[in-house]
Amino acid sequence: MNIFRLAGDMTHLASVLVLLLKIHTIKSCAGISLKTQELYALVFATRYLDLFTDYISLYNTLMKLIFLVSSFSIVWYIRHHKIVRRSYDKDQDTFRHYFLVLPCFLLALVINEKFTVKEIMWTFSLYLEAVAILPQLVLLQRTRNIDNLTGQYVFLLGAYRSLYILNWIYRYFTEPHYVHWITWISGLVQTLLYADFFYYYFQSWKNNVKLELPA
C-alpha cells in the first residue's frame, strides 16, 4: 500500500459518501444520473466476486463491502425511495448505458489476462468503470447547471482515478513484474474522460463562478 493508493481509495470513498450524504439529507437526487450509479453498482458486483474467496486484508475486505453497500443503496434510493425518486429526471438521463455494457463485456472476452470467468468479470469491471461516468457527464452537459455537491462528486471520482495512476507509476518503479496494461490503459481512458470536466471545474473555481459546462 502506498500513499497514492491510500489517498485514491479515500477520495473514492469520499465521493460515494458525498453522494449518499446529499441524497440522504436533502432527499433529492437532482442532477445525478441513475444510469451511472447502476453502472458503478455493476462494476463493484463484477469486480468483487473474490470478496469471500480471496482474503487480502481487513482493509481490502472492508472497503469492498463499503463500496458494494453504498453503490447499491444509492441505486435503491434513486429508484425506490418515495421522496428521492420524485427528483430523478428520467427524461434527461437518457444515455443508453446498455450500449456500454455489451461492448465492455465483448472486449473483456477478447482482451484479458486469463480466460477464466473470474478474470473476465474482473476485466469487464475495469472497462465498464472507465466509461461508467459517461451518462453522468452527458446529464451534466444537458442540465448545464451543476449543484456544488454533484460537481464535488464528479471531481472526487476523477481525483481518485488520477491518484491511482500515480499509484501504478509508483508500483511500476518499486515492484518487479508489476506490469498491468489492461488496468493502466482502462484507468487512463477513464481519467481522460474527466479531463474536460476538470478543466471547467477549475475554471469555475478559479473565477469563483458557478460551474457551467458548455453545451
Binding site: 481509495d9 487480502i56 486484508s57 481490502n60 474482473w122 508500483r171
Partner: peptide
C-alpha cells in the same frame, strides 16, 4: 503469481 498483485487494489 504476479498477476494477482493487480487484484489487491480496489
Amino acid at each position: 503469481e504476479y498477476s494477482n498483485s493487480a487484484k489487491d487494489e480496489l
